[in-house]
Structures are given as C-alpha cells and as structure tokens.
Amino acid sequence: MTEPLLQVTGLNRCFGAIQASRDLSFGIVAGEIHALIGPNGAGKTTAINQLTGEIEPDSGSIVFDGRDITRLPVHKRALMGLARSFQITAVFEHLTIEENLALAVQAHMGHSYRFWARADRDLRLTRPTRDTLRLVGLEERASAPASSLSHGEKRQLEVGMALAGQPKLLLLDEPMAGMGPGGTVELSNLIGELKGRITMLLVEHDMDVVFSLADRITVLVYGEAVATGTPEQIRANPLVRQAYLGEEHD
C-alpha cells in the first residue's frame, strides 16, 4: 500500500471533561473519497477542525503530504492544498459570486499585497475563476451578490471556493446539511465527478450519499475510530452496527 496523503496518529483533544478526540488514528489514501461517520457528538467536527488547524490537539500528530502539520497555522495548511467547506455555509454574503471565487483563486497566487491594479481586470485571476464558475454551474449569476443565492446554491459556491485552489485534499463538512432532495442529487453528482481527481474527506449524515460515494469509511464513536474499511466491510461489521446504529435509534 502507498503512503497515505494524510495520516492522523493518536490524536487527543479534551474540552473540559469531554474528550472529543480519543487516540484518534486514520489515514486517507490519495485519490479516494474517505468518509467520516458517527453519531451526533462523536467528535467529527472536532476532528476536521484539528485537520484544518482551527483547534490544536492536546497530543498526537497529523502528517499531510509528507510533512508534519500538527502545529501549522490554518492559512499555511490551506496553502499546502488542504481545503475545506464549512458545515454552516460560509460564503462572503456581500461580495458577488465571482468575487467569492476569485478570492479563493487569489489565495493560491502568492501574496495579495497588490494595491493598485484592478482585480477584476486581472486575467490570471478571472480565467481560473470563470472555469470554477462553470464547474459549479453558477456562471449565469456571476455578478449577483452571494446573499441572493438559495441555500443549495450557496453550498455549490462553497464547494467551488474549496475547489478553486486546486486542493490536494478537500474536507467536506456535512455538505448536504439543510439541502432539499434535488440539491442533494446535484451536489453528489458534482462530488462524484471530482472523484479520482481530488482526494476527499467527507463528513456526512446522509448514509445513502456516504455509501454510494465513499471508497473507505471510518466510524467515530466518542471521539475514537472504532472501525475503518470499505463500505461493505463497515456494513458487515457487528461492532459498528451495535455502537453506531444502536446509538442512532435512541
């Protein structure tokens, strides 16, 4: 087996008396869609936040693309190719859709201490922006403010922003949350299209989506990874059925 793109080893993180990550270990293989599932409060978002650097782990290590990033600040990880979408949509409401995406492109073009040239006439910025607009299907609304988008469209924009920097690993934190059935189909199609081109870590409650898209699944219970395997293995794992599905019913 090849070296994983991202390897998490022995991550621990407490919030007061609650241990949100408990000796958490898993690896993400390049090119795969890896899903992180678990009941509410299992520490999925805490895990993601430690990967992006918003929360520092108490102990353990995170190695990404051959480099230990455990103590690296958020923006440096992003520049290394670790992109994320947020659980609650986090687009720049007062900027236009195009400007939203342009910012994401701009982030990966070196520093932005350019004070004079107009950003909207900069072809190096506008070209990749247009490409991403097309990819997420928002081309026609490019100059509308992001606040005018529907919830599902904001999600698409979110994912577009994460994609604009051509990340090596994309962290999708509950991309389907709050979406109608139509939007869910559209977004899973988009994720399916990207499969193989971009490695993804998918945190999602919608089990249909998870089992149809994921190559590998890690099950989190009380901050601990109780099982990792292919969708078939996870479906068959008695420990998972007991711990996870049992929890879901009460």
Partner: peptide
C-alpha cells in the same frame, strides 16, 4: 475564519 481557511 473563511479567509484563513482559504489560505490568507
């Protein structure tokens, strides 16, 4: 926070 996540 979003800006940091983008890499700024």
């Amino acid at each position: 926070r979003r800006m940091q996540a983008l890499g700024f």
